[in-house]
């Protein structure tokens, strides 16, 4: 995996989670800026998926290929799903869903890094 892209995803998702958490504390429902923010995070995740696919085609997949691809797919859907579930709730609890979704992303990235570093087949 490419460290710069990984870190971009991790930093963006953590920043987004922190931003949404502020809104939860301030008792704000999810609003348009949070949709745009989620879009930015998702774009970075998309970039990471493309990079990972290119690397796997070029250098070979990691040993735990199935698990790695599973994490990749989960990372791809978690933010849109969270957004979908969050927007229907017009209270701070809707925004809290965005925090949870955004916090799953760095966990998945770190797990993907571990699998990747464990060795390519």
């Amino acid at each position: 995996m490419v460290a710069v892209v990984d870190w971009a995803v991790i930093v963006a998702s953590l920043a987004y989670a922190a931003w949404a958490l502020v809104a939860v504390v301030r008792n704000q429902a999810p609003r348009e800026p949070y949709v745009i923010g989620a879009g930015v995070v998702e774009l970075l995740i998309l970039l990471q998926v493309v990079v990972a696919i290119v690397l796997m085609i070029g250098d070979g997949a990691p040993d735990e290929t199935a698990t790695f691809i599973g994490y990749l797919l989960m990372n791809l859907i978690i933010v849109p799903l969270g957004l979908f579930w969050a927007l229907a709730e017009k209270s701070r609890w809707g925004t809290s869903v965005l925090v949870v979704a955004a916090l799953v992303v760095p966990v998945l990235v770190v797990r993907m890094q571990q699998i990747w570093d464990a060795g390519a087949a």
């Binding site: 799903l81 609890w93 949870v100 979704a101």
Partner: peptide
């Protein structure tokens, strides 16, 4: 709705 929204979100993460 309310806290249930968050609870179900966490459940969904675990289900997935």
């Amino acid at each position: 709705s309310g806290p249930g929204r968050l609870l179900i979100a966490v459940y969904a993460v675990f289900a997935l």
